[in-house]
């Protein structure tokens, strides 16, 4: 564990120009190690979503530096041409709502990512099944998305995020629509998956139920991050 999964230094993001410019991020520093699950907490408008989009290579930061698994991907400008391939292969996403593809069954929702990365169909489906089994939804592998409960859909979306074994997963309010028990279940699974696949997971959340479970928490306020140790409560 000598190289951080993700490391950012003095990252800024400015929207607009001149008098109307808004500094959403004013110099964010963050280091996440493989296998770690870190909380990112902050009030609305603090810059959480902007930071998540920068980390996810969806929007371009204004300045700063960002490395992924030791490779610099941003240093005043993107250092990688194909951001879509970067996202596909090295960043997993878990959304507040599962946003599964409704016209694909459970297995293919997960298998789609390895397939997009060029893995053969059979191997992709085999990997998808392995992940679904690990997340206790293997028995719904052939089900349509609409037939799943909210908790099952969220587990499938976790499996999808892990499908290409990315070094980093960004989870945006993954427990927001769930009750306490299911929310803690999701956190347990994230911890388990982080350990099993040595994936760094950043969980953006407001959810008071799950904040005590993080060992490290980044607070974000007015575009700046503050690190603090979490309770790391067992789930």
């Amino acid at each position: 564990m000598n190289m951080p999964a993700i490391h950012i230094e003095n990252l800024t993001k400015r929207y607009g120009e001149g008098d109307t410019a808004v500094d959403a991020l004013k110099g964010v520093d963050m280091t996440i190690w493989p296998g770690e699950v870190v909380g990112l907490v902050g009030p609305s408008g603090s810059g959480k979503s902007t930071l998540l989009k920068c980390l996810g290579a969806v929007i371009e930061p204004s300045s700063g530096r960002m490395t992924l698994g030791g490779q610099t991907i941003f240093d005043a400008a993107w250092k990688i041409d194909d951001l879509r391939t970067l996202r596909r292969d090295r960043i997993g996403f878990i959304f507040q709502a599962p946003y599964l593809i409704p016209f694909l069954d459970v297995t293919d929702n997960v298998a789609l990512l390895p397939m997009l990365a060029g893995m053969p169909d059979a191997a992709s489906r085999s990997r998808a099944l392995e992940l679904l089994n690990a997340l206790d939804v293997g028995h719904r592998a052939k089900a349509a998305v609409a037939q799943l409960s909210g908790g099952e859909q969220q587990r499938v979306s976790i499996a999808r995020a892990l499908a290409n074994h990315p070094p980093v997963i960004l989870a945006d309010e993954p427990t927001a629509p769930l009750d306490s028990e299911r929310a803690l279940n999701v956190v347990r699974m994230l911890n388990q998956m982080a350990q099993q696949y040595q994936t760094a997971i950043i969980v953006v959340t407001h959810d008071e139920k799950i904040i005590p479970t993080f060992k490290r928490i980044y607070h974000i306020r007015d575009g700046r991050t503050y690190e603090e140790a979490g309770e790391g409560r067992e789930v």
């Binding site: 996810g56 946003y99 593809i101 999808r160």
Partner: peptide, 16 residues
């Protein structure tokens, strides 16, 4: 549109 945004986010190409 939401599904297409997700597909683009997870790396589906414009060609796909």
């Amino acid at each position: 549109m939401r599904e297409i945004a997700v597909l683009k986010l997870i790396g589906a190409t414009n060609q796909t």
